[in-house]
Design a protein around this nucleic acid. Structure first.
Length: 415
RNA sequence: GGACAGGUGGCGGAGUGGUCGAACGCGCCGGUCUCGAAAACCGGAGUGCCGGCAACGGCACCGUGGGUUCGAAUCCCACCCUGUCCGCCA
């Protein structure tokens, strides 16, 4: 959500920012809506002021028993036309809420992922001769069952069993512990069903409704814990935080994958349900850039400690999500698939979401919008894939990374 | 799910149609007093929007949304939420 005052102050700058998103100039239409709205507000308020004044006079007249005067005043009020600015308010709000965030100056130009920039890399993309993909390994062990899942739930679901089920659990537990014990995040166990307002706050709604699962009632299943965690401070005014407020949660995530027909249909790379450890920070504008770097580093540490090869990618203008000013994707190398695949995405949305959800902090006499950041720390399902493919042995078994063994009762090998 | 009770400012709690944005108490901020503090006393203090360079003026907000009325925190309707009891249940 954009600040109409900022737009008023610099329409050309705003249009330039939207041009980077591939959009035509927006300010003429927005300024016209704003002008219409303000004119309507001014008219409605002065009419109301007149009405209020007359009503007070009626009260005074009746108090002194002047029924005639009161009647005359009532007639005067009745002649006033009703006026509101509701329609104009809604129109401007909707127009402002439909536009993507302004990009950070460092975000490279470009239409799609081919213009993304690799910032740095850890490890090498190993070419393991005869390496198998995760689903081959999992099915061979009898611990990863897509057919059973299809019978239960349809496509894009998986059933994990035995040591693989435990490995998934170990990954989630270990990541969560790491962020809580060593990265300063507060653990949260949030609802996974939320209302529309929360989804508007983190900008899944109204634009991306088709990506969500909806209940028969008024709830939606969260597509990421970013939604409940970020909305924890919605409609709040907190004292200025000295340090960023950091939340983390391990939750299932639900995505309809409506636009992904035919993509990644094999294996568990793209599922309707997956679990993910999410990190969310809320902080002052001055803190947010450093916090973005720090958050990304927290996710990178997860990958490094799992012994994975990864790289950090700065998304280009065309690939950066609607709500983000700047996004770092982390990609892991999958030796079986022989490809880099996204496993984490860390975004600074600056005040874009905070303005939508009215999350503020007090500085002196002013109430300012917080900055909000979110990042996967990391996607558990994809981490499972990466661990399987990276640590697969010639005999088809998988070596359990050392950091996970305490969560596996010491088990060193699966399969 | 059923029956009652209730949702008012940071908190507690008045207010049942006419200067009520809201008494009072607590807490909070500033000041006086004090070597300093406490106490006492004085003063201040909600959010958003519109107009204005500003001073300041105006509009809205008493769970949410409608309605009645010249006028609603107060009356009516619907919904949401909380508490208590009953039922059911991990």
């Amino acid at each position: 959500m954009h600040d109409i005052r900022a737009l008023r102050a610099d329409p050309a700058g705003f249009d330039a920012a939207m041009a980077r998103r591939g959009l035509p100039p927006q300010s003429p239409a927005l300024l016209a809506l704003d002008e219409a709205r303000r004119a309507a507000v001014t008219a409605a308020e002065s009419a109301q002021a007149r009405r209020n004044a007359l009503s007070r006079e009626i009260g005074a007249a009746m108090k002194r028993g002047d029924a005639e005067g009161a009647a005359r005043l009532k007639a005067e009020v009745a002649a006033l036309a009703a006026a509101t600015a509701d329609a104009e308010d809604v129109a401007l709000e909707a127009a402002l809420a439909a536009l993507p965030n302004i990009l950070d100056p460092e975000v490279p130009e470009g239409r799609d992922e081919s213009a993304n920039v690799v910032l740095h890399q850890h490890g090498t993309p190993r070419d393991l001769p005869g390496a198998k993909e995760h689903w081959e390994l999992g099915e061979a062990m009898g611990l990863m069952d897509f057919e059973a899942a299809a019978r239960l739930s349809g496509s894009r679901f998986v059933v994990l069993k035995g040591a693989l089920a435990r490995l998934e659990r170990a990954l989630g537990q270990w990541m969560l512990d790491l962020h809580v014990a060593e990265h300063g995040y507060e653990e949260v166990s949030p609802p996974v069903l939320v209302k529309r307002d929360a989804l508007f706050g983190t900008n899944q709604l109204p634009k991306f409704e088709e990506d969500l699962f909806r209940t028969t009632g008024e709830h939606y299943l969260i597509p990421t814990a970013e939604v409940p965690l970020t909305n924890l401070l919605r409609e709040q005014i907190i004292p200025e935080p000295a340090q960023p407020i950091r939340y983390t949660a391990l939750t299932p995530c639900f995505r309809s994958e409506a636009g992904a027909a035919g993509r990644d249909t094999r294996g568990m790379l793209r599922q309707h349900q997956f679990s993910k450890v999410e990190m969310v920070s809320l902080c002052t504008p001055e803190q947010s850039d450093a916090e973005h770097e720090r958050m990304t580093a927290c996710a990178e540490r997860v990958l490094t400690e799992l012994g994975l090869s990864w790289r950090r990618v700065l998304l280009c203008a065309g690939d950066t999500g609607f709500g983000a000013a700047r996004t770092h994707d982390l990609e892991v190398w999958l030796p079986g698939q022989k490809a880099w695949r996204e496993i984490s995405s860390c975004s600074n949305t600056r005040a874009f979401q905070a303005r939508r959800m009215k999350a503020r902090f007090r500085r002196g006499k002013e109430n300012l919008f917080l900055h909000t950041l979110n990042g996967s720390g990391v996607a558990v399902g994809r981490a499972l894939i990466a661990v399987m493919e990276t640590h697969q042995q010639p005999d088809g078994s998988i070596a359990v990374p050392g950091v996970l063994r305490p969560f596996m009762r010491g088990q060193e090998r699966i399969g």
